[in-house]
């Protein structure tokens, strides 16, 4: 008997997916950009050179460092109409964007997954209620729904999260319901049923692990959208309230000074675009790596 060379254990699907993801150079680069924004957001108070709320009218609309008319050394990206440092506000603004997006997407994923599992597995009246609710919520243009709710609830960080979650869970729910309907007919679920497992056990222990990767893919895609939503609401003045800096409201702040101070509106927009584009690229990579079947959904 010869000792055979130990075979490497077969990789788990997750490990395989991660390996595929690591091979996608665009996705890796995009993920690094996202990571950079996350780090900026987390360590904002230590990284930002100035207090984002520190106003000084002597610095009003001072130009960025590369412009000839820059008068305030140390304020690299210039100042807004109240003389607040734009760089510091951008760094702190990342906190609002990312925390709203992360909260909304996570809460919506949990609600959507549970509702989708219940609707898809239990069928019957549960499915009818959930599906009608989903249809109804899909009957609103996203922004109209969010604006309507914000109008009624009033602006503020908590209300944005609530307004967006109320619509956002639908997207996860639809995907999970579809996946659950398919899983329901499969042998492993049938086997669990034959063994006498409770519906709760089957949904949470058997089916849930199998729908997690589409949930993850949907969640990352939706994150990009939620960031644009928060920025749009804040732009309209329905989002976070001053003095808390949000990229959307910063763009709005600069609207009256487009002629004299283009940087006030332009720079926060570049941040939104960079972050959203990176998330979209990264999630495309994740989709290809984790779930090639999901090519059609977004």
């Amino acid at each position: 008997m010869s000792a055979s060379v130990a075979e490497p254990p077969p990789l788990s699907p997750t490990a395989l997916a991660l390996r595929r993801l690591a091979g996608n150079r665009t996705a890796v680069a995009a993920s690094l950009v996202v990571l950079l924004f996350v780090l900026l957001a987390v360590f904002a108070p230590w990284i930002a050179p100035h207090d984002p709320a520190d106003a000084d009218l002597f610095r009003r609309l001072c130009a960025p460092a590369w412009a000839a008319e820059n008068t305030e050394p140390g304020y690299w990206l210039g100042c807004d109409a109240l003389g607040r440092d734009i760089l510091s506000r951008l760094i702190h603004g990342a906190r609002v964007s990312l925390s709203v997006a992360a909260l909304v997407v996570c809460i919506a994923a949990v609600i959507g997954t549970l509702a989708g599992l219940a609707a898809g597995y239990l069928r019957g009246w549960t499915d009818t209620i959930v599906s009608r609710l989903v249809d109804t919520l899909l009957g609103f243009p996203y922004l109209v729904f969010a604006i309507g709710l914000m109008a009624m609830m009033g602006p503020g960080l908590h209300n944005i999260v609530l307004a967006l979650v109320l619509k956002e869970w639908v997207f996860t729910c639809r995907v999970v319901r579809g996946e659950t309907l398919a899983a329901r007919e499969q042998d492993y679920v049938e086997a669990a049923r034959a063994l006498g497992c409770t519906p709760r056990h089957i949904m949470l222990r058997e089916i849930l692990p199998n729908v997690l990767s589409p949930v993850l893919v949907v969640a990352t895609f939706r994150m990009a959208y939620v960031i644009i939503m928060e920025a749009s609401l804040s732009f309209l003045g329905l989002g976070v309230q001053p003095p808390m800096p949000s990229w959307g409201s910063m763009v709005a702040d600069g609207r009256d000074f487009l002629v004299d101070a283009w940087w006030v509106s332009t720079l926060p927009g570049i941040c939104i675009l960079a972050l959203v584009l990176s998330i979209n690229l990264a999630s495309q990579g994740m989709r290809d790596a984790f779930d090639p079947r999901l090519h059609q959904s977004s």
Binding site: F235, V251, R255, L258, W262, S265, T266, G269, Q284
Partner: peptide, 22 residues
């Protein structure tokens, strides 16, 4: 297309104003 879905509409409008109007 990827750019199109990543672009915040309000900012795109402001850029157009800056460039073509201002």
């Amino acid at each position: 297309s990827l750019f199109g879905v990543s672009l915040p509409g309000f900012w795109f409008g402001i850029l157009l104003i800056l460039l073509f109007a201002v």
